[in-house]
Each structure stands twice: as structure tokens, then as C-alpha cells.
Amino acid sequence: MSRRKKGRKTNILLGIICILLVGVLGSILVISRQAEQKESQRLTELADGQQSGIEDYEAVKEHAEELQKTASEEDETADSDNNTAEKSKKDKDTEAADSTDNTENEETRTISGVVCWGDDLLNGAESDTYSYMAVLQKLLTDNGYNLTVVNKTLQGGGTLSMMKMAGVSDETLQGYIAKHQQAANGAQLNVTETGIRDLTEEQTTRNDMDCIPVIFMGYYGGWNHDPAELAEQQEQILNTFQNKDQFIVVGTRPLDGTVTSEALDAALSQKWGEHYISLASVTAQPSATYEAQQAMAEAILQKLQDLGYISKAQ
């Protein structure tokens, strides 16, 4: 073989090898390209999955927070309802307790007697036997009422002294005196219109706070001949009692005749309504007679019964 032919074969062999290497390299590039595409696709899908997971997580988290908020609001509402219900129950219990206490107080309130405030028109032994107080005590006892009649009257005393005995302030008393002196305009006034009697400790001691007051005052003056002022002074004494709802007021014209029975009764009946007894309406006798005192005692007993102040169970 010639040298030329031998070189040609070598060249052909090298060309074939080059072609094969190019093919192998191309295959490798194609495979690598496909692998890269697959990896890229996988990474994209993974990234999308992660983003979806994050979004799902955020949605779930948001939903959970809403549920928690709703549950909290429901708990607060339930607590509020429970508190309201509990408060309502406590209020009802308190009202029931107060009602029970009031009922018990009304049931257990004891009335030890009847106290007579004001004028005593009879003296000494006469008073002990024939005054309306003595007669009223006998009537109560005879009718089965276990009640004592307490005497808080002043013989010949004016209404200013009676108010002092009840504990009305000196300032109030001096106000009445100044009013009387101004109205008199320098004229001479009866001593009861400006003077206040000296009283003993026994007279000013209150032992009648659990009694029903019967106020019979004004016969000897002290109220400037004005029925409206007399009613005001009666109220001053009434206000010193703890229980101001149970009382009786008896009216009679004054000793000096400056005010008629009709004028006095008109003012006092308007002021006191069903609590008022007009002595002129139950007797035609003068106030200081035994007959008038008897009639007044009977009228007071009847009024005590009519108003439901006393019962034989006491």
C-alpha cells in the first residue's frame, strides 16, 4: 500500500470519529437541555405550591382569628347576660328583702298608746276624772284596747309654750313672736302671744314617740288669731314625731272668741282632712264642760277606729 492511500484511510477514520463525537455531544446537550427544562418546571411548580400553601395558611389563619374573635364576643355577651341576670336577680332579691323588711316593720311596729298634746281645760281632780284624757283611757280599756293615754298638755298654756315643750327650735319660736309683734303694730298683746312658759325637765322629756298623737291646742291663744298659723304650729309639733302619718287633730274656738268655730273648722278641716275632729260638730256644750269632754273622748275613739290606727290585738 502506498503512503497516500494509507493517509486517506486515516483521514476517513478520523472524520468518522469526529462525527460520532459530535453526535454524542449533541445528544448530551439535548439530554441536558431536557433535564434543565424539567428541573425548571419542577421548581416553578414547587414555587407555585409554596405560594398556594402560604395563601392557604393566611386564609386559614384569618379564618381562625375571626372564629376566635366571634367566640370572644359571644363569651363577652354571655358574661354580660349573666351579669345582667345576676344583677337583676340581686335587685329582685333586694326588693323582696326590702319589701319583707317593710312588711315586718309594719307588722312589728308597736303603738304603746295615745298621747294628748295641747290644752287641759280642767284642773286637779276634775281633770283626773272628767277630762277627755281620763274618759278616753276608760273607753279604751272598757273596749279591750291595751293602750295607755299619755298626758302632754299644759293648763292655761299658749301654743308657743306647747311647741317649746315638743322640742321646736327657739329660732322658730322667736320668728312667731316677731310676727305677732309686727302685726300688733305697738298694741298690747296677750301674754300667750309673746311669752313662753318655763318648763321642767319632766315636761320637755319625750316619752311618747311610739304613741299616736292627738293634738288639741289653741284654746288659750298663741297663734295670732289666725287659723292658718294655728295649723302651721300644730304641724310643727306633729313633725317632731317619727311616724307622721298617724295622728288626730281636734279643734275648738279660742277662749277669747276672736275666731268663730266655723272659721276655725274651715281652715283646719281643709288642712287635716279625715284626721280632723271639730268639737263643735260633736257637741253644743262649751269646751270645758264635762259633757263636751266626754263627747270629745268618744269622737277620738271613733276616729282611731275609723282610721284603723288601733286594734284589740294590741
Results as ranks from 00 to 15, higher is better:
Ala96Asp: 11
Ala35His: 07
Glu107Phe: 06
Ala97Ile: 03
Glu58Thr: 08
Lys89Met: 03
Leu21His: 01
Leu21Ala: 11
Cys18Ile: 13
Gln37Arg: 15
Ala96Lys: 12
Glu65Ser: 07
Val114Ile: 13
Asn102Ala: 14
Ala78Ser: 13
Leu29Thr: 09
Val115Lys: 01
Gly15Tyr: 05
Val115Glu: 02
Glu76Val: 05
Lys92Tyr: 05
Asp48Thr: 13
Glu74Leu: 10
Cys116Ile: 11
Val22Ile: 12
Val30Lys: 02
Ile17Asp: 01
Gly113Gln: 02
Ala78Arg: 15
Ser40Phe: 08
Glu76Ser: 07
Glu45Gln: 14
Leu21Lys: 00
Ser52Leu: 15
Ser72Gln: 12
Tyr57Ile: 04
Gly23Cys: 09
Glu86Val: 11
Tyr57Val: 03
Glu106Gln: 09
Lys90His: 03
Ala71Asp: 07
Ala71Gly: 02
Gln51His: 06
Ala47Asp: 08
Asp101Cys: 00
Lys38Met: 09
Thr84Asn: 09
Glu104Gln: 08
Leu67Lys: 14
Gly23Ile: 11
Trp117Cys: 03
Glu58Met: 10
Gln51Asp: 12
Ile54His: 08
Val60Ile: 13
Gln50Cys: 04
Glu62Ile: 05
Gly23Gln: 02
Glu104Gly: 00
Lys89Pro: 00
Gln34Thr: 07
Glu45Leu: 15
Val114Tyr: 01
Lys89Asp: 06
Ser80Asp: 09
Asn102Thr: 11
Val22Phe: 06
Trp117Ser: 02
Leu20Arg: 01
Lys61Leu: 12
Ser80Ala: 15
Ala96Cys: 02
Ser32Pro: 00
Thr77Ser: 12
Val114Asn: 01
Cys18Lys: 04
Tyr57Met: 07
Glu107Met: 05
Gly113Glu: 03
Cys116Tyr: 03
Cys116Arg: 01
Glu65Lys: 12
Val24Arg: 02
Asp93Lys: 13
Gly26Ser: 06
Ser52Val: 11
Ala59Gln: 11
Ser80Thr: 09
Asn105Cys: 01
Val60Asp: 14
Ala97Asn: 04
Ser80Ile: 09
His63Ala: 15
Leu43Met: 12
Lys61Val: 06
Gln68Glu: 14
Ala47His: 08
Glu55Phe: 03
Arg109His: 06
Gly53Val: 05
Asp48Gln: 14
Ser32Val: 06
Asn105Val: 07
Arg109Tyr: 10
Glu62Gly: 11
Asn105Phe: 05
Cys18Asn: 03
Thr94Gln: 10
Glu62Pro: 00
Ser88Leu: 12
Lys38Phe: 06
Leu46Ile: 09
Asp93Met: 04
Thr84Ser: 12
Asp56Glu: 14
Leu43Lys: 15
Thr84Pro: 00
Gly53Ala: 15
Ala47Asn: 11
Ala96Val: 03
Gly26Phe: 04
Thr108Phe: 03
Ser40Ile: 07
Lys90Phe: 03
Ser40Lys: 14
Thr84Glu: 06
Arg33Asp: 04
Arg42Lys: 14
Glu66Trp: 05
Cys116Lys: 01
Ser32Lys: 07
Glu39Ser: 13
Glu73Ile: 08
Lys90Pro: 00
Gly23Glu: 02
Thr44Trp: 09
